[in-house]
Amino acid sequence: MSEAAQLLGRIAREDRAALQALYKLQSVRLFGVAMAILRDRDAAADAVHDGFVKIARRAAQYDPERGAAEAWLGSVIRHAALDIARRRGREIPTDDATLGDSPVEADQLETLAAGEDGARLRECLSRLADKNRQGIVLAFVHGLSHPQIAAKLDLPLGTVKAWIRRGLHSLKECLA
């Protein structure tokens, strides 16, 4: 079991020192996850705050049998950041020049090659059409809504929705 998974077990038993240790271990990675979505340090701090409060209260819901602790922590912080983005009406300008530029480039997906799961996902993503793959990365990594992705990729909204749904379906089949 990873260090993070062991700490979650202690946090579930209300061990506050374990929560602090988990914060030390994971906050830089998780703050980066929130920043990718919110692109604002104050808002990202709010997301990590909300996320860690949830982690403290719901650590018992983490089941090591069902996945890596890092993935569970990432999803808690992502959803906290997405909630903040939704409350703000996702008004983040999509014409931000720095938005999603690099992670969407195919060579940046090299990062995913670390670890077996990452290599498989990368292989499956590479089989998707470019805009399909970009839509999925823009949504997951940068928290863009359907209309924002449509604006960013210059595609009709209905097309984006259909492509993303189809892309997810292909990914699932490819990863099975």
Partner: peptide, 26 residues
């Protein structure tokens, strides 16, 4: 689905949070 897409989390660049954040959580 969280497990399938989790590797994408590594595309977010790590960044140090503001210094007072832990105290706020506590």
């Amino acid at each position: 689905w969280e497990a399938r897409l989790a590797p994408l989390l590594t595309l977010a660049a790590p960044e140090a949070p503001p210094p007072g954040l832990w105290a706020r959580i506590e």
